[in-house]
């Protein structure tokens, strides 16, 4: 731009301007709609394909052309209903994930609060240190962990596995809650103190209600981390297998139609859970009906 454009003359020009603005707005709307559609398809198409194939007969699954309407053949899914240990494994998975959720919030949220509110020596080092638990691959950690667990009797317990999953979920819990607490102005807490609250009361009555949707969201995240973890679960549990440890390694090498049916069995409970807590997830992204 070398010279400032002359101001539009009164008359025809403003309508040009308006038309352009309208065009821009329309283009923007289209762009948003397109991005939203692509993102939705990105998530929904794989899930849809899994479900269609899970509900098809083996020959339909490996055959061509593919039908996009399921024939509602239940034989692949029925296999898993009769597969010994699926129900127990599902229960174990839910319990491990639930404990992981509780532990990572109970331990992670105070750490997040400290990171958000206090300046202390080694704060940055602590922030990095929290992330370090994700820096070591689990196959490396699993051997010494398993040896220690066998020796202290935590081996093959749901609680023991939940400890490991908590460690994996912790960095997210700490960092997400830290940013949540940072989003609540310190002045609100101070105002509560001046009105006679103790520190604890101010936290419980003022800060907690404001961050609880976000905390729930990071709890959901911990749940998903635990639900998806395979290696530690496969090594550290024997009789108390989680669903992923129980099925995933077998599915990997199973015929295609059972892969799809198994994927449906693995995905559905997590989907249902996420659906049940979806409004907390929305809250984390700031579109809650607060």
């Amino acid at each position: 731009m070398t010279a400032t454009a002359p101001l539009p003359a009164h008359g025809a020009a403003p309508s040009d301007e308006i038309a352009r603005a309208l065009d821009l707005a329309r283009a923007k709307r289209w762009l948003v709609a397109a991005v939203v559609t692509i993102l939705c398809l990105w998530v929904l198409v794989p899930i849809y394909l899994v479900l269609v194939n899970a509900l098809s007969t083996p020959s339909e699954v490996s055959g061509w052309p593919k039908s996009f309407v399921p024939s509602f053949a239940m034989e692949s899914l029925a296999f898993f209903a009769g597969y010994r240990g699926v129900a127990e494994a599902l229960l174990n998975s839910v319990m491990v994930a639930a404990i992981t959720m509780v532990l990572s919030i109970v331990i992670g949220a105070p750490a997040g609060y400290a990171l958000a509110r206090f300046d202390f020596a080694g704060k940055n080092a602590f922030r990095i240190l929290v992330l370090m638990t994700r820096a070591f691959p689990l196959p490396l950690l699993a051997l010494p962990l398993a040896v220690a667990y066998i020796q202290i009797g935590l081996d093959d317990t749901i609680l023991g596995l939940a400890f490991v999953h908590t460690m994996l979920a912790m960095p997210f819990a700490v960092l997400i809650t830290a940013s949540l607490f940072m989003g609540v102005p310190f002045e609100l807490e101070e105002a509560a103190w001046t009105l006679g609250c103790t520190r604890l009361q101010a936290f419980v009555k003022v800060v907690l209600p404001l961050v609880s949707p976000g905390i729930a969201a990071s709890a959901v995240f911990a749940f998903v981390v635990s639900w998806n973890e395979v290696f530690a679960a496969a090594v550290l549990t024997i009789e108390n297998r989680t669903l992923t440890a129980f099925l995933l390694q077998s599915l990997n090498v199973s015929p295609l139609h059972l892969k799809f049916a198994g994927a449906a069995v693995l995905v559905l409970p997590a989907l249902l859970f996420l659906f049940a807590v979806r409004k907390y997830l929305f809250a984390m992204w700031g579109i809650a009906n607060r």
């Binding site: 051997l143 066998i150 020796q151 496969a234 390694q249």
Partner: peptide, 16 residues
């Protein structure tokens, strides 16, 4: 089991 967890578990029991 996959070979990974299989070996890790067996080794852990041997070491413990």
């Amino acid at each position: 089991q996959d070979a990974g967890p299989f070996i890790t578990r067996l080794r852990a029991e041997t070491e413990a």
